[in-house]
Computed example of a mutant assay.
Amino acid sequence: MMDNASVITMFTLSGLSGTVSHRVTLFVLTLLCYGVIWLVNLIIVVTIIMDKNLHEPMYIFLCNLCINGLYGTAGFYPKFLHDLLSTTHLISVPGCFLQGFVLHSSACADLSLLALMAYDRYVAICRPLVYHSMMTKKKIILYVFFAWIIPFYLMFISTGTTLTSRLCGSHIPKIYCVNWLISKLACSASVAQVVVPAFNYTFYFGHAVFIVWSYVFLVRTCQTSKENKHKFMQTCLPHLLTLIVVVGSLCFDLLYMRFGSKELSENVQNFMAMEFLLIPPIINPLIYGLRLTQLRKRVSHYICSRSSVFR
């Protein structure tokens, strides 16, 4: 078995064996969903970048959240669309590690950006007098930089510990690559493969605790003033809904991957595997686009002005 570890160059992805009869329909639906993801996220990103009135911390963080949605889905949909029209569902070992890195780092960046957005709302509502001194342009750039670089670094370390393992298997029971499933193919477990993921989970669990803590203070503060209640409903409610969608989707996938029943149909398992790559990237831009009045007006103005040009 150990001799075979060095000759593994391809992984087999399972999950699409039962889609032969309707793979074209699935391809069209998936392509449509991916197109919608690009459309709604790109509209938000372009609107925020082009309108100087939206160059505020909340919108800058939202812009990065949408960019991250495009980054994460790019690690899944092109390969998945290819597999839908292919008879063999193979992925190279480097490609598998790259896909796992992109999906993991994107999920972690989501939590980092949501934590920043919670901090921004906490300072804006609970400490409004020091908001402009605490959320300067330099600090915002620094916050955004670390929101991206820390997930990249942690996932680089996590992927590196798995990459150095000798593999004694090539079958991944999922429609995309995940570091945890790759590590299960290792001939022998290492301490690093346990410690590094445990640290990452603890680190981002800390993000969730911070977000909950910030919202406890937000709710308490908003109860004392009608103006703060309006701010909460206008800017915090979309963030809270986004948080529920993202964290709920991620936790659902993680828990199902480890403890879920394999007796469910293949189609249900596939949907559960990809729902965090489908629901948040579409719902999040729509939530903010509909709830944030200033952004909604800018998007409507941008679309209407563009459509009038083509008349």
Rank of each mutant, 00 (worst) to 15 (best):
L70Q: 11
I60S: 14
Y256K: 00
S92I: 04
I48C: 06
F101V: 01
Q294H: 14
V45W: 07
Y34H: 07
V216P: 08
L218Y: 08
S265T: 11
G69I: 01
F276L: 14
I283F: 15
F101M: 04
I244F: 14
C222K: 12
L163C: 11
F76C: 05
M2P: 06
V247S: 10
S105T: 10
L98R: 08
S225Q: 08
A189G: 13
K137N: 08
P197V: 02
K79Y: 11
W213N: 13
P173D: 14
Y131I: 00
I149E: 05
F97E: 06
F205G: 13
I60Y: 03
N53Y: 01
L250V: 10
L290H: 15
R166M: 14
I175L: 14
Y143A: 12
Y71H: 13
L98Y: 06
N41F: 06
N284H: 04
N267C: 09
L295D: 05
E275L: 13
H207I: 00
F205V: 00
L129A: 12
M50Q: 13
I282R: 04
H230K: 15
L264H: 12
N179F: 15
T159G: 10
F97I: 01
N179K: 09
S86E: 08
N53G: 15
S21L: 05
T88W: 04
G100R: 06
W213Q: 08
L218S: 08
A208F: 08
Q234K: 15
S214W: 09
A115D: 07
S190K: 10
L292D: 09
R258N: 11
V7A: 10
N53R: 14
G35N: 06
C168H: 10
V299N: 05
F27K: 00
A118K: 01
Y204T: 01
Q193V: 02
L116K: 01
E56Q: 13
I8A: 04
K184H: 14
R291W: 13
I43C: 07
C96H: 05
F76H: 05
C66E: 06
T162C: 15
H301W: 06
S261Y: 02
L254H: 08
L250E: 08
L111C: 09
F76T: 01
S265H: 12
V40F: 12
R296P: 06
V191T: 14
A147W: 04
V40H: 04
T47E: 01
P128D: 03
S106C: 11
S265E: 09
